[in-house]
Every structure is written in structure tokens, then in C-alpha cells.
Design a protein around this nucleic acid. Structure first.
Lengths: 205, 205
DNA sequence: TAGATTGTTAATCGATTAACAATC
DNA sequence: TAGATTGTTAATCGATTAACAATC
């Protein structure tokens, strides 16, 4: 049985929908519509309905969507109906901010360990963690079976760290180093580089 | 004279090209080709040539592109041939990490001031800055004529801060609060939400 | 010159939107 | 029932790719 391939651009919008639904839920809203979601997200209602319809029928004509139900379905689709443990590599400013970040709670994500190569940082307390020696990275990740990593090391170390993470069994990487890193096709990769976002806007100023 | 409208998706790739060229330049490479750029960026060579051709002819047949020259042209196109001052709003972990971030140097971006509303934070040192009172935000931004802001406040304050920034004359916003904020169409907006990127990858795990 | 690579066109591919029957 | 809103189809729109003449 051939599974339908969903465009990645659709997958990329689902977390956006989920975030909006979580917010509606926390405000006590019980039902919504593609139009209301469209208004709060700046996406067209038709697109939202089309995206959702790739996965099933979650709404009722005339009524719209039940917020809790749709959020629950999206959780299952995105596989965030359970918590994912993550490791952070790099305990500099960015890694430290991420280790203490409150925004992963309630979103099925949890930092489990943080690593650095700097002897001055190893063993130090950081948020609820003790910074671990990067030389133990492969063993620790394998032991816990962790699949997601966040890279927050200087750009000249990013590729080497990436290769090590993949050896350890990491399947998804969020890269904060401002450099393009190469990964095999089966590894998921997302990048965050604030300067890139900012330079995209200066064009219009 | 009607100026050609360049698709935003093309503008979004230019900083990527610029980043790669800066890196080549720092490694001492003097010439490159659309194919080499394609290989280092994971974008097709045809697309890179097409994107660049929207703005002029920067290469030579048979030879490729002069790294310095192309980087220079991109700087002008993106308007990053001069440094842009920015303000950060929110001196929590994220704002602090951004205030100390070294990655803005050499990329024509500079943090100029950081604001918070918490009396415990106002007046404190943070990197090279003294955290300013958010109530002075409009005056300070207007005085300096700053156009770019980074929002790093809790999600329940993000929209209010946004509205204030726009009143102060801010034209481009990078939002770290995990919420969709509304802005008028003439204001540029980019958002960074690590959980969104991570939830986009769990689908595939 | 021969080989390489650009800039550009036309073809392809994919994503978005508009519209509406179905139905709650 | 009447009004509202879904799920889906077909049409439109836009982006990517392949290919090649031009030319360094």
C-alpha cells in the first residue's frame, strides 16, 4: 500500500496551525473555522482546508472545527503526541539560552543534555543541567536513544559536530551555526540564522 | 519608470548567496561558479543564475563569478553596504544572547540598544549595553532613527510591543515570541520559533 | 582553438486560489 | 428550514528546471 506523499511545505504549516489551536484552547475557545484560523495566521482559508484535507476530514460543514479535536489530530500527525528528548551541543550564549528556554514545554519537546568541548564549561551548572564533555556525546546519545539535536557551536566546528551527531544516531538537527552544513538525505535539517532573516528585510527598507 | 518586482522568495535566497560568498572570500577563493555555489548551498545552479539575473549580469561565460565583485553587488542589492542599527526588546535569556551575539558583526548589523520593562533588569549591564526602560523606547528609537527591531519578550506582550515599535518608526521586525503578531502591510516581519522548526521535523521521524 | 560557464527562454512542475456541491 | 462552512475540484498562478546559444 503506497502511502500518499505530503508536500513538505504542507508539513511546515501544520505546527503553525497547531500553535494557533493551542492558543485558542488556552483562551477557552472550543470551536474555530478555517476562516478564523486564516485571519489569525495570515494564510488563506482555502489553503488551510486543503492542507488539513490531506490527512482526513476533521471539520463539520456549517460548524467548523472542534479546537481540541483538531489539535489532537495534528499532534498525532506531527508525532508530537509524546515528548521528544533533545540534546544541545555548545554551551555558549545561544546554547545556554536554549537550555533555559521555557518555550519547549507544552510543545512536546524537552532538552535532556547539553555538551561542550571547553574544559572551563564542562561540569558547570546550566539551568537544570550539568554541561557534559563532548567526547562522551556518542555514548550518551546512544544510551538514551535521542533522535533530535540542536547545534549551537561556532561555525568552524558545526560540520564536525554534525558528523558526530549522525554517528550517534541523531535523525533531526536544528542548526544555529551560521553556515550551511551537509547531511545525508535521510537526516532532517533546519537552520536558524537571525542575520539571514534580517538581511532579507533590509532589501525593502 | 516601473521598477521590476522581484519575488520575495528570490530576495530570501540572496542573503544565503552572500553568506556563502563571504565564506569563500575568507578562505581566499577569488572566483566561483553557479555550480560551486549550488553544491555548497544545496540549491540548483540554474536557480542561482536565474535569481542573480534578475538584478544584472555579474558573471563571465566560461569563467564564472568574481567572489568579491558578486559579494559587493549583493551587498548593494540587499542594502547591507552600510551598517544597520537595531534595538532588542526584552532582556531575558533570548534577548541577552542576542545582545552578546557575535554573528551580527561582519554582516552589516549592529545591536544599538536593549530594552526591558522589568525594574530589576533596567539599568543592569548586559554585554556592552545598559538595559533601558521600555517606557523610553519610542523616544530613543526616534532619536536614533532606528528602523530594525528584535522582539524577545513573552508572547503575551509581543503584540503590544510590536504596536509601540511601529509607532516609534520601526519598519522591520524579527520576532522571537512564539506567536503570530499582526503588522500593517508596509512593515516587514520575520519570525523565529525553534519549536516550530523542530515540530516540522518530528513528522518524519 | 576547445572547454567551460553564463544569461535566458521555453517547458515543466508544483502550489495556491476560487468556486461550489454537499451537508451540518 | 436557512445560513454557514467544509472538503474537493478545476483553474490559475508562480516557481523551478532543462537546455542551449552566446561568449569568455
Amino acid at each position: 500500500m503506497q502511502q500518499k506523499i505530503i508536500p513538505d511545505i504542507v508539513i511546515g504549516r501544520l505546527p503553525l496551525y497547531y500553535r494557533a489551536l493551542q492558543r485558542m484552547s488556552s483562551k477557552g475557545h472550543t470551536v474555530t473555522s478555517s476562516q478564523e484560523l486564516a485571519d489569525t495566521l495570515g494564510i488563506s482559508a482555502a489553503q488551510i482546508r486543503k492542507d488539513l484535507s490531506q490527512f482526513g476530514e476533521f471539520g463539520k460543514q456549517g460548524t467548523g472545527y472542534n479546537v481540541e479535536y483538531l489539535a489532537d489530530q495534528l499532534k498525532k500527525i506531527l508525532k508530537i503526541d509524546h515528548v521528544w528528548d533533545m540534546v544541545i551541543v555548545g554551551a555558549g550564549d545561544v546554547g545556554s539560552a536554549l537550555a533555559r528556554y521555557q518555550g519547549f514545554q507544552d510543545r512536546s519537546l524537552r532538552v535532556k543534555m547539553i555538551f561542550d568541548s571547553d574544559p572551563l564549561k564542562i561540569g558547570k551548572e546550566l539551568g537544570n543541567f550539568i554541561v557534559k564533555d563532548i567526547s562522551t556525546l556518542i555514548d550518551e546519545i546512544k544510551k538514551e536513544g535521542i533522535k533530535i539535536a540542536i547545534i549551537a557551536v561556532p561555525e568552524n566546528e558545526a560540520q564536525e559536530v554534525t558528523d558526530t551527531l549522525i554517528k550517534a544516531g541523531i535523525k533531526a538537527i536544528l542548526n544555529y551555526a551560521p553556515i550551511h552544513i551537509a547531511v545525508p538525505p535521510e537526516i532532517r535539517l533546519q537552520c536558524i540564522d537571525p542575520a539571514l532573516h534580517l538581511q532579507r528585510m533590509t532589501y525593502y527598507l
